[in-house]
């Protein structure tokens, strides 16, 4: 029995060590960036031999976890506020914070031809529920409220607004038809062929910048540094754009 355990422990050790030079980094990824992050991580592994292990969740939860010693080396937040706070709290390697993607807001409905090319449907009153992300926690929610205010519709539409805890949930409300309309992320609907949509002009709201930071825990991690560099590179940018984000 003892020998069996020993053999298993050795086998586990062999698996975890892997090739000597390739390092591994743990990356906390905002849920809305799940798909592009997976694709980028796969390309990153192919290009550098390093491995990026991704965890997906909400930026707020990740911040709370990182502040309490979570073993992540890189944090891809869905906003600017939390990376800034992490920096202020001394949790990051200074000078490594940058915007990796800028989100766009879109008015979306599952029903074809329901949303027109100028978003006039918002004034029609021909719907009962408009789904948005919780402005208290999600930048897309803030952008949605700002847009409605800019259009002078916030007061009128306030009773019809339903809030998802995250932008993912706001999208679920529209996708299941529970809400006829939703102000959601372009990245969520870019792969959808059906439905109807209006890309909200960026001038209607504060830009939805998503920032990345290298955390203190990753200061000496070759894979973490390489991942940060790769994320700024041309290949990563192509992927990010394809998913409906803007990148400078």
């Amino acid at each position: 029995m003892l020998r069996l355990w020993l053999a298993m422990a050795l086998a586990a050790l062999a698996v975890t060590c892997g090739p000597a030079l390739a390092a591994e980094t743990h990356v906390a990824v905002a849920a809305n960036f799940t798909e592009p992050a997976k694709e980028i991580a796969a390309a990153f592994e192919k290009a550098t031999g390093h491995r990026a292990v991704l965890s997906f969740g909400s930026s707020g939860q990740f911040y709370a976890q990182i502040a309490n010693g979570a073993p992540f080396q890189v944090f891809l937040s869905a906003d600017v506020e939390r990376p800034q706070m992490a920096e202020a709290a001394g949790l990051t390697v200074p000078g490594n914070r940058f915007t990796y993607a800028t989100g766009r807001l879109v008015l979306y409905s599952r029903t074809p031809r329901f949303v027109d090319s100028r978003g006039a449907v918002l004034r029609s009153g021909r719907f009962q529920a408009l789904s948005i992300a919780d402005p208290k926690t999600a930048p897309y929610g803030v952008a949605a409220i700002e847009t409605l205010k800019k259009l002078g519709l916030y007061e009128t539409l306030a009773p019809k607004i339903v809030q998802g805890a995250s932008i993912t949930q706001a999208y679920q409300f529209v996708e299941t038809g529970a809400a006829e309309l939703g102000l959601v992320a372009m990245s969520q609907v870019i792969g959808e062929q059906g439905g109807s949509r209006w890309l909200v002009p960026a001038a209607n709201h504060t830009p939805i910048h998503q920032q990345a930071v290298l955390l203190k825990t990753g200061a000496d991690n070759a894979a973490a540094r390489a991942f940060m560099a790769y994320l700024r590179g041309a290949q990563a940018k192509t992927v990010i754009r394809r998913y409906g984000y803007e990148v400078r």
Partner: peptide
């Protein structure tokens, strides 16, 4: 319970 979640998310610990 939802409110607690929102407060944690919006850093109002």
């Amino acid at each position: 319970s939802i409110e607690i979640y929102r407060l944690v998310e919006s850093l109002e610990w």
